[in-house]
Design a protein around this nucleic acid. Structure first.
Length: 463
RNA sequence: GGCCCUAUCGUCUAACGGUUAGGACGGAAGCUUCUCAAGCUUUAAAUCCGGGUUCGAUUCCCGGUAGGGUCACCA
């Protein structure tokens, strides 16, 4: 069987991680089986659908590398191919199908009398009380039977649809609602597998009822667990869910986001944790998808990103270094700075963040520190003679040799003879003004010969 | 509240009746050219509870408990 999956976002918000993972699973499953991954915009809610969100979703998907295939639909009016399937453009089709149901007496136009039996319900959704209601809606004639379907992840799920009553499938003959549109579209798009979030489980029975009314073949279902916030509730906009585009802006690698997301709720059954998209496609298996929800943890995603960063190498940081840190630095110095930063960050935006917190002030301006700090706490002698000696040694190092290894080679024999801390600590303090900073060799190479000597002389003037 | 789903270290998870319950992130400790970072090594940390079934349950069944989802003229 040719597998066809789909990702049907509603452009009422930016693409969140949870939806991105659902899209990823649909993509991986389809590609694993050599099938197609389709895209559909569920924009029937004109009030809430926004072009801005649509753009965000499309661009985020593209960034993640989840490219969809064109849709070839098969219906009464023949075959046609489209790039973007929009529900808002399919009004005529829904209208025809709706009419079919009403004509066959499988649905009916319902006159809504006000005294709905909500009063006797144990629970009334707050949302249900909002907004004006219409006098007339289209309801589905519920056969009131028990629906049993097989979930590829959870196994058999039974549901007595009696409690659904004659549910609404359209606001009017021109305005279908979600359940109707989904069923019609999935059938026309030839969707074979519906992989969606666990919150779709309760929608499944009524959608199956509608499918049966039309005589459509039932697709396979797989409900994946939700991605949870740290408090173990569904990750949502309101609960601090961060859109994919934001992670993109922070400088995450799309490969890292995909890699991390794939491992949230799924695992290959081995200890392997780093996967390329191709490897994911090969390894992906719905039967290894977890049943319980998974808490999203950025720490681990940062670790994954760092692993990808390592593959790129230190020089990949250069375009991400704020220009103020590299102003009037030579290319060699810039590379040294990149190497220094490389050890300290997991995501590109960390550079900016640390820079703003003053972490790299020593690259920007002359350090300020109190004289006492020049003295190493375990020092056996004062810093003066060591600073003088270091200054004299470094004065003799040529500018071309003023690199990490060049400085180290020149300084180490002396430092080892006098006790490393005795020499290195005051030297580092003179260069960075901080108790915690890179070693003086790195510092010297980042700063260059001129600035290094200047700072040493300044330190000397204090003691 | 009804219905549905779920339950292994703090987190992501492995173990598809028999393991000293494994790995990863994070944590802790140690080592590594002064501090930090990075790296390496070591380490603490879990089967929700109660009944069954079985020679033997993390694993199968039942019941609790807990958590989550959903109950729209949104998708």
């Amino acid at each position: 069987m040719n597998v066809i999956t789909r990702f049907p976002p509603s452009p009422t918000g930016k693409l969140q991680l949870g939806n991105a993972r659902t899209a990823l699973f649909n993509y991986l499953f389809a590609k694993h089986h050599g099938g197609s991954f389709l895209f559909r915009l569920e924009d029937t809610d004109r009030e809430r659908s926004k072009k801005e969100f649509e753009t965000d979703i499309v661009e985020s998907l593209e960034w993640l590398g989840l490219t969809h295939d064109p849709v070839t639909s098969q219906n009464a009016s023949g075959a046609s191919t489209t790039e973007v399937w929009r529900q808002s453009e399919r009004g005529e089709m829904y209208k025809a199908k709706l009419k079919e149901l009403v004509d066959r007496n499988l649905a009916y136009i319902s006159k809504e009398s006000e005294l709905a039996d909500e009063a006797k319900a144990d629970f009334v959704s707050p949302k249900r009380q909002e907004g004006a209601k219409r006098d007339e809606v289209i309801r589905f004639r519920n056969p009131n039977k028990t629906i049993t379907f097989n979930d590829l992840i959870r196994g058999e799920i039974k549901f007595d649809t009696t409690e659904l009553g004659d549910f609404v499938i359209a606001k009017s003959m021109e305005e279908p609602i979600y359940h109707l549109a989904v069923v019609i579209d999935d059938a026309e798009m030839g969707i074979t597998h519906i992989i969606r979030g666990e919150d779709g489980i309760s929608n499944t029975p009524r959608q199956i009822l509608i499918q049966e009314a039309f005589g459509f073949t039932r697709p396979e279902y797989a409900h994946v667990p939700l991605i949870l916030a740290p408090d173990r509730t569904k990750l949502s906009k309101r609960r601090g869910a961060i859109p994919v585009s934001e992670y993109r802006a922070r400088g995450y690698f799309p490969e890292a986001v995909v890699n991390y997301l794939a491992l949230l709720g799924w695992n290959p059954g081995t200890d392997k944790e780093l996967f390329s998209m191709q490897e994911l496609i090969e390894a992906f298996d719905l039967s290894k998808v977890q049943k319980g929800g998974a808490v999203f943890g950025e720490e681990k995603m940062r670790w994954v990103n760092k692993e990808y960063l390592k593959k790129e190498g230190a020089s990949s940081l250069i375009p991400h270094i704020p220009s103020e840190l590299t102003a009037d630095k030579t290319p060699a110095q810039v590379l040294t700075i990149a190497e220094m930063l490389f050890e300290r960050i997991s995501v590109f935006s960390d550079i900016q963040k640390d820079n703003e917190s003053g972490e790299f002030d020593y690259l920007l301006k002359e350090p300020e520190y109190s004289k006492e700090l020049l003295q190493w706490k375990k020092a056996t002698e004062g810093p003066k003679i060591h600073l003088e000696e270091a200054l004299s040694i470094l004065t003799n190092v040529s500018s071309e040799n003023f690199t990490k290894s060049g400085i180290k080679d020149a300084l180490m024999p002396y430092a080892e003879a006098k006790g490393k801390g005795n020499v290195l600590w005051p030297l580092r303090m003179a260069l960075s003004g901080k108790e915690q900073s890179p070693d003086p060799f790195t510092l010297g190479a980042c700063l260059g010969k001129e600035a290094t000597l200047r700072r040493l002389r300044h330190a000397l003037s204090m003691v």
